[in-house]
């Protein structure tokens, strides 16, 4: 059987709900079992990647810190909805850097900013999509 490609998309902001944490957990579990996983941040999900987050006053675990470490789990692609950034007055420079190493240990940018038809086309390429 050919390899199945998984997509985990997060569409709600972090900390207000458990959805994002559950979605990321599933991504990391799938990756730990050697599956081909991509993560996408859509709509309010883009707030997972803003710089300078401090959830200590909320008493919540800073689970979004797992995102810049996706590369360590061999998750090499993090899709971000560029139109969602623009609608929220956010720019790509306000996002944390996320990188991964290829098979020859060369470092690459993992962020893939897409919008509109190109985004929809990309999302449609995955075999299994879990939306959170």
């Amino acid at each position: 059987m050919p390899e199945r490609r998984f997509l985990l998309s997060l569409s709600r902001a972090p900390y207000g709900h458990l959805d994002g944490q559950e979605g990321l957990d599933l991504a990391l579990v799938l990756a730990a079992f050697g599956q081909n996983v991509t993560v996408a941040l859509l709509d309010d999900g883009v707030y997972h990647l803003t710089r300078g987050q401090d959830s200590s006053a909320l008493g919540l675990k800073p689970y979004t810190r797992q995102l810049p470490a996706l590369g360590d789990f061999d998750i090499r692609e993090l899709i971000v909805d560029r139109a969602a950034l623009q609608a929220r007055g956010l720019s790509a420079s306000q996002l944390q850097a996320v990188t991964h190493e290829d098979d020859d240990f060369n470092e690459h940018d993992s962020l893939l900013l897409l919008e509109g038809a190109a985004l929809a086309e990309k999302l449609a390429t995955f075999d299994i999509h879990f939306g959170f």
């Binding site: 902001a13 972090p14 900390y15 207000g16 707030y47 803003t50 710089r51 300078g52 987050q53 401090d54 959830s55 200590s56 006053a57 909320l58 919540l60 306000q94």
Partner: peptide
């Protein structure tokens, strides 16, 4: 609420007060 802004890496806009 300041704690919710901080958690999301955000700052309040002009004329909006933060509270703890």
């Amino acid at each position: 609420l300041e704690a919710d802004l901080l958690a999301r890496g955000l700052q309040a806009g002009e004329a909006i007060d933060t509270v703890d």
